[in-house]
Computed example of a mutant assay.
Amino acid sequence: MSQGNERLHHQYIKYTVYLHIEDPWKLFLFHAHKAAMDAFTRGLALELAPFGVRANTVRPGAIRSNFHRRDNVPGLGDDESYNKFLDTIAKDNPSGRVGEQEDVATAVSFLASDKASYINGGDIVVDGGRYVQY
């Protein structure tokens, strides 16, 4: 029988994105939602830490995937336009490249591992240095 003081050793990892949104109202809603989710994650980190549950956020930058090819960024349906888009992003990034899905997966895998057992309520930015540029 449980005494009620067992530690669970679980992780909650929130994945958040940066989007190009031109409509000011949609942009406002996006940032308001993002701020609320950040506060939610920090609240989880505080409330659930005594039970061995950690909560963290992974913030990827531009990652090579089909995400941009969907209706999120108009005009990127063909390979030539998409590759030109990625080249532009890479040139503007301090690392000189676009992220790969494996870059994000590595961060998530690390946070979910025991090696990150003392990381709670944090953000890992996976964007090649783009965030610190501004």
Rank of each mutant, 00 (worst) to 15 (best):
P74L: 12
Y82G: 04
K84F: 12
D79Q: 05
P94R: 06
N83M: 10
F67E: 00
P74Y: 09
R70F: 02
P94W: 03
H68C: 10
A90Q: 07
N72K: 12
G96R: 09
E80P: 00
R97K: 14
P94C: 08
Y82E: 09
Y82S: 02
P94D: 14
L76W: 00
L86G: 00
A90P: 01
D71G: 08
G75Y: 04
D78W: 12
K91S: 11
S81E: 11
S81P: 02
V98H: 09
P94I: 14
F85S: 10
F67N: 02
P74S: 12
D78R: 11
G77D: 08
D92H: 09
N72H: 12
G75D: 06
R64P: 01
E80L: 11
S81G: 10
T88V: 15
E80M: 06
H68R: 03
F85M: 04
S81H: 07
D71V: 05
H68F: 13
L76K: 01
G77I: 04
G77Y: 01
N93C: 11
V98P: 01
R70K: 10
D71Y: 04
N72M: 10
R64F: 03
R97C: 05
E80Q: 12
D78K: 01
P94M: 03
N83S: 14
G96F: 06
K84A: 15
I89W: 07
D78T: 11
L76Y: 01
R97T: 13
K84W: 10
K91P: 01
S81V: 03
S95T: 12
N93E: 10
T88C: 13
P94H: 05
N66F: 09
V98M: 09
N93P: 07
S65V: 01
L76Q: 07
P74G: 13
N72P: 00
P74E: 12
K84Q: 15
R70D: 15
N83A: 05
G96Y: 12
V73R: 00
G77C: 08
K91D: 13
P74M: 03
R64Q: 10
V98F: 04
S95R: 06
